[in-house]
Nucleic acid binder design. Structure first.
Length: 745
DNA sequence: GACCTGCTGCGGTATG
């Protein structure tokens, strides 16, 4: 049989694969290897170092990594896993298992799924005879190290490769710090450190990815970038204005939440457009919050009922039970019934749901990396376009309204985001404020793993180049002393200096929720006729006869089990949409604010705006000009003073903290800060003083920052260490804040 | 003015 692979480079790559892999490729009916796959085969077979493979979704990254890896490990038998694949999602492990299992079976290489829902028997088998490939979550690696330290080295210590999937998901946040630390610890127990292969779709700064993958030698990481061949993009931005005096833009249609006479809110009009536009095809609607998702899904279901047609709109978010979510994912992938999922960010990455016809977004986006990921769900078949509809909600305004509302910043932001999307911009990863909290977790974990360890080898194992590089020996000593203090009792020190777990540390490590480095909140479990619907935040006020909209249906609470934290419900026509826990918003990048300013200054009216959005854009620009915001940045509005900063959320927050030092409490928004009950006459000398401080010490600003501590173990982080870390991560923004103060006028 | 992610080991019982 002739080689099915065309192109000389690809042909060469194909010929170098293991004969059984070549047969499998022919059996798949593939007529060519993708370019990224051919290049990965060359790099992995010829090289000895680490590799980052960055390519669009559905470009065949998994095969790009595993075809050459399997070729190299084909002849290895037993003696530990040959390759460790780390994934942030169980669902992704299940998908990859289906893709790898058949190929590996042909090669007689075992593959084992290793996560909380995976078969105990399979895991036991692998512990007895570890071999081949393991597909595992970070938390399961953590559990292995702390609960079976004797087995860990035998299982992982001989691996030739560690593959990290969805690498971009680990470039920031506590879980990224956690996995990076686990990689170091796996290296420390290995006879020879494994080669690392990172797989990713959207990465804003590739240097960050290389540094994350091999902190000791980022420049040695081979980088394989797939040429982007993005499908044609069709897009529309639609504008909607809320009615006057609205207190809840997500309330349930025709419910008691609508206290005054029922009236139409923006969400009603948005769903009036979504219903006929999306019906009959598969789509994703991103709602932004679980509350908006429930409210919109409920409206769309009612429109189906009214039209006398079967419902095809279903909610999907993290509080819904697994069964609901999986049923919907299967229905989307299967494709025999038209289906639209109204979701939060749950369907943004990972799980295989096939290609959808269009993506809709309720509310103006703020993050390019997330919008890109969402768009990647459409236009996956050759020749079909990506379709994106953005539904922008703006408040009602009249002469008494705040200028912040009159500036129509949501509409402006939508236009700016589209411009940056077309320009190919993606935000880099932001620093993670959970550093010390995650270090505490790893300190406890290493002590549990080894039974006890002295401070110096503990520091050498965890710190230095890598996730905790910013922790100096003196910081580490301070942290250990604090953890060992009589008030904390996380650690104890034996007379010979060996650190061991204290009574509190023992309790924490033994608990079932030790393995994850992120927090989880307490919730009510919601059941109907014995079936679990999902979970509601414990803060949601409930009592018998409460009405609730959940899982796309309306319910009445029959019974409240305080002890078991269970709510029993039954279908009911009324219902309130529950409020979930609020937290801080998605951060905006400097470049987005610069682009928003450019949109205000320009005169072009993009043709992708509907008539209402065009009017909102014009209103925003008129207000911008009337206030002369091109030249002015300090605007008095009655007793409030607005300072227009035009910088990232992080810079604006630091600027706000610097004002806090001067005794001014202020509110922070996209465009800048608002200081209540202050005049520009009072403000100008303060700004002048701030601007003249050439060396404002970030440590001094840190003292005025609320929530300087973050993460699961934030209560155990010494305040001064938290402030020092904040100053390290925000020092550059403090400098920017003084520079901003100089320019405001 | 937000979202998402993860989970051991034991003892009990039922089933092939």
């Amino acid at each position: 049989m002739n080689s099915p692979i065309s192109g000389s480079a690809a042909e060469g790559a194909y010929d170098r694969l293991h004969p059984k892999i070549r047969r499998w490729i022919r059996d798949q009916g593939w007529d060519e290897l993708r370019e990224i796959q051919a290049r990965a085969i060359g790099t992995i077979l010829d090289g000895t170092g680490d590799v980052v493979i960055a390519a669009a979704t559905a470009a065949g990254k998994t095969e790009a990594a595993f075809l050459p890896i399997l070729t190299l490990i084909a002849e290895r038998k037993g003696g530990g896993f040959s390759a460790v694949y780390v994934s942030p999602l169980k669902a992704l492990i299940n998908d990859q298992f289906r893709r790898l299992d058949e190929l590996c079976e042909a090669m007689e290489i075992p593959v084992v799924k290793w996560h909380g829902d995976a078969s105990q028997a399979e895991k036991k088998k692998a512990i007895a005879k570890p071999s081949g490939i393991v597909l595992i979550t970070p938390e399961s690696i953590e559990a292995m190290l702390t609960r079976r330290p004797g087995d860990a080295a035998r299982l992982f210590g001989a691996a030739d490769f560690i593959v990290v999937d969805e690498l971009h998901a680990f470039l920031q946040g506590p879980r990224g710090l956690h996995v990076a630390s686990l990689l170091k610890r796996l290296d420390a127990m290995a006879q020879k450190p494994a080669r690392r292969v990172g797989l990713s779709a959207t990465i804003g700064d590739l240097n960050q990815a290389m540094a994350w993958l091999r902190p000791t030698a980022p420049q040695t990481v081979d980088l394989l970038l797939a040429k982007a061949d993005a499908p044609e993009l069709r897009l529309q931005i639609r504008g909607y204005v809320e009615p006057p005096d609205l207190d809840d833009p997500d309330h349930a249609e025709g419910s008691g939440q609508d206290v005054q006479a029922p009236r139409r809110i923006a969400l009603d009009a948005i769903c009036d457009h979504l219903f006929p536009t999306l019906r009959g095809t598969n789509n994703l609607v991103f709602g932004g919050s679980r509350r908006t998702v429930e409210s919109a899904a409920d409206r769309l279901r009612r429109r189906c009922e009214k039209a006398g047609v079967p419902n095809e709109f279903y909610p999907h978010h993290g509080s819904l039970s697994k069964t609901f979510r999986e049923d919907l994912e299967i229905r989307l992938k299967d494709g025999s019934l038209p289906t639209t999922a109204v979701c939060t960010s749950t369907l943004e990455l990972g799980v295989d749901i096939g290609s959808v016809k269009s993506v809709a977004q309720i509310g103006a986006p703020r993050s390019l990396s997330s919008l890109r990921q969402r768009l990647g769900r459409t236009g996956r078949r050759r020749g079909t376009p990506s379709i994106l509809r953005v539904y922008v909600r703006e408040p009602y305004v009249d002469v008494k309204s705040s200028i912040l509302d009159q500036l129509r910043s949501n509409t402006i932001r939508s236009v700016a985001v589209v411009r940056l999307l077309l320009a190919g911009f993606v935000e880099p990863a932001a620093p993670s404020p959970e550093t010390v909290s995650t270090l505490i977790h790893q300190v406890l974990s290493v002590i549990a793993e080894r039974g006890g360890i002295r401070a110096k080898p503990l520091f050498d194992l965890l710190c230095g180049p890598g996730p905790f590089d910013s922790i100096e020996p003196a910081d580490f000593a301070q942290l250990l002393r604090h953890l060992g203090s009589p008030e904390v009792r996380m650690l104890e020190q034996a007379p010979d200096g060996v650190l061991m777990l204290g009574s509190e540390g023992e309790k924490i490590v033994q608990s079932r929720d030790f393995f994850a480095v992120f927090e989880s909140s307490e919730e009510w479990r919601l059941t109907a006729a014995g079936r679990t619907l999902g979970a509601l935040p414990i803060s949601f006020p409930v009592h018998k006869d409460s009405l609730v909209v959940f899982a796309g249906q309306r319910w009445i609470v029959l019974d409240v089990d305080e002890g078991g934290k269970v709510l029993s419900v039954a279908p009911h026509p009324g219902g309130m949409v529950p409020r979930f826990e609020p937290s801080s918003g998605e951060p905006a990048h400097d470049r987005l604010l610069a682009e928003m300013r450019a949109v205000y200054l320009d005169n072009d009216v993009p043709e992708y705006l509907d008539k209402a959005a065009q009017e909102l854009l014009a209103e925003g620009r008129d207000t911008f000009r009337a206030l002369d915001l091109d030249r002015r940045s300090v605007i008095q509005e009655e007793r409030d003073l607005h300072l227009f900063v035009w910088r990232s959320s992080q810079t604006t927050a630091v600027f706000g903290a610097a004002l806090g030092m001067a005794g001014l409490e202020c509110g922070i928004h996209d465009l800048g800060v608002t200081v209540p009950k202050t005049t520009s006459a009072e403000m100008l000398p303060i700004l002048e003083k701030l601007g003249s401080m050439s060396a404002l010490d970030p440590m001094d600003v840190a003292a005025f920052v609320k929530n300087v501590r973050a993460g699961k173990f934030q209560d155990f982080v010494p305040e001064t260490l938290a402030q020092k870390q904040w100053a390290l991560q925000n020092g550059q923004f403090v400098g920017t804040a003084t520079a901003i103060a100089k320019t405001l006028r």
